[in-house]
Amino acid sequence: MSVASQDTAIRTGRITRTLIYVVLILFALFYMLPLYVMLVNSVKPLSEITGGGMMNLPEEFTLEPWFKAWSSAQIGVEPTGLAPYFWNSIKMVVPAVAVSTVLGALNGYVLTKWRFKYDTILFGLMLFACFIPFQIVLIPMARMLGLMGLAGTTWGLALVHVVYGIGFTTLYFRNYYAVFPTELIRAAQIDGAGFFQIFWRILLPSSGPIAVVSIIWQFTNIWNDFLFGASFAGADSQPMTVALNNLVQASHGVKEYNVHFAGAILAATPTLLVYIVAGRYFVRGLMAGSVKG
């Protein structure tokens, strides 16, 4: 009796599982379709695309569209390709991610381990920053950047992203440090470590997992941002996303779809790389051993 019912349980289990897998694989394929289209068409000559058959594999394989997108496509006035804009993005993203992550960590540290009056209210206000829509801050921010003499610069753009990202990074680090054993901080205090020594020597080395989360989040958001880039960047500080848009929008005459596809993939590559590289360091249990458990 019990054996039979267990048997059916296993069988229904197997059927549902197969069903789930089939559905999931279908969804995955559907989701991957755009990537397939982009990849395939970025290595075809334009004639193959305009001749129809977007879904076909290339008859003639060429990397020409990639080179063109990177270094010679007409963007703005000069035929520079996306390369200079790629470096603009890097120059904006790296300091913005680094600064917002470090500041978030510092905030989280203070908000959990150096509690002060009204700290929860302050944290609530910082959280509020996560929910402010971009559009609302555009004009005030433009004015602020102007006053600070940072209008139209990469530094100005980085500053905007730092300010906008702090709410998120603070949230991440605060929640992470909230469960960080306070006894470790106290032990360090007795050992004579000061505010920043505790932060650098004790807290940060144990913050690997959450730092990775914060970096991935900030990197993708800032790299993919279009609105701030389009609003605050000058002609020579435009980030990749804005340049890609210009490439696609502004080319007169023939639309070089293969070049557009290649450019789009180039623009998406860094975030993909960050996921692939940093995602592996998403290790949990770095805290193991400090506290019995």
């Binding site: 470790l184 032990a187 020597r201 144990s206 193991a288 400090s290 506290v291 019995k292």
Partner: peptide, 8 residues
């Protein structure tokens, strides 16, 4: 009580 050894 938890020993509070620095994990890193």
């Amino acid at each position: 009580q938890s020993y509070a050894l620095y994990p890193n």
